[in-house]
Simulated assay, not measured.
Amino acid sequence: MTRTLYLFAGAAPPVFDIARVIEDAQARGWDVCLGLTPTAARWLEPSLDGLAALTGRPVRFEYPLPGRPEVWPAADVILVAPATFNTINGWALGLTETFVVGALAEGIGKGVPMVAVPSVNAALTQHPQFERSVETLRAAGVTVLFEDAATGSEYRWQPALAAAEAVAG
């Protein structure tokens, strides 16, 4: 039985590794559906067709028009990586102006297992809302991997995929 991973990515430098991460997830047995924030989609615009071919599904970065059929299978787990300051705060506050944040907010309500790996600079982590947002998401059952995400060290893709596998069961 194929498991479905929604991989949602924001506009932070680790997003440029997304094709490799999709391949790693597929090697682990995941059917990957890729969702991007609007800015991440703009950054990756020259690669969107190739990413769609890699996943075998359309890359989504905006809400579909009403009445259109769902083009992705249901998620077994959602991995949000890189999760930006804007995505973390919007998600925690329920501000669903983008497709990714709207799907994340619904994921909490549907009980979909979720993992978030922030990619936020040190100055933004000092903003008081960021810590509150991380606490809110954790209280809602989201696994947030944030121990060293803001230190400038290598982005934690392998622990992110391992955490997604663990929460998916």
Rank of each mutant, 00 (worst) to 15 (best):
D24L: 11
P58L: 13
L36K: 08
W91S: 09
D31Q: 15
K110A: 15
D76P: 01
V32F: 01
F130D: 03
S47G: 04
L93Y: 08
L48H: 00
N89C: 14
S47A: 12
T87S: 09
P69I: 02
R57W: 13
P82T: 07
L93H: 09
L104I: 08
T55C: 12
F61G: 11
L51H: 02
P69V: 10
L79I: 04
L34D: 02
I88D: 00
V100T: 10
D24V: 02
A122F: 06
A41R: 02
Q129F: 12
D76K: 05
G107A: 15
L95T: 15
E62C: 05
V71W: 09
L44P: 04
V32S: 05
T84L: 00
S119D: 11
P118M: 06
T87G: 11
R68C: 07
A27E: 15
P118T: 09
L104Y: 02
V112D: 01
C33N: 12
V120S: 03
W43K: 09
E131T: 15
A25C: 01
W91M: 08
L124F: 13
P58E: 11
L104Q: 02
A53G: 13
R42W: 14
D24Q: 15
T98Q: 04
R68E: 08
D49H: 06
L79S: 04
L104V: 06
T87N: 06
P58A: 14
V115H: 00
I108H: 06
P128A: 11
G107M: 09
L79P: 01
P64W: 10
L124R: 07
L93Q: 07
V59S: 13
T55H: 01
G50S: 14
P73T: 06
V101T: 15
V112E: 02
A81G: 13
G109E: 11
A92D: 07
L124G: 04
P118V: 03
T98R: 04
V71H: 08
T55Y: 03
T98F: 01
T39Q: 12
G94E: 02
I88W: 00
W72M: 10
V112T: 12
L79G: 00
L79C: 07
A40G: 03
P73E: 10
R28P: 04
E106K: 15
F85Y: 11
L36I: 11
A53V: 15
F99I: 06
E97A: 13
I88M: 03
A103C: 14
V112F: 14
N121D: 11
L54M: 08
F130S: 09
N121S: 05
R28K: 10
V115Q: 01
A123L: 08
T125G: 07
P66F: 01
T84H: 01
E97I: 12
E23V: 04
D49V: 12
G67S: 00
D49Q: 09
P66L: 08
V112Y: 09
G111Q: 04
P64Y: 10
W91R: 13
Q26G: 05
P46W: 14
L36P: 08
P66S: 07
A92Q: 08
V100R: 03
G29E: 10
R42V: 12
Q26A: 11
T39D: 09
F99D: 08
T125H: 12
C33F: 14
T87H: 10
T55Q: 05
L95S: 15
L48A: 01
A105M: 02
E97Y: 13
E97N: 14
A83N: 08
R57D: 05
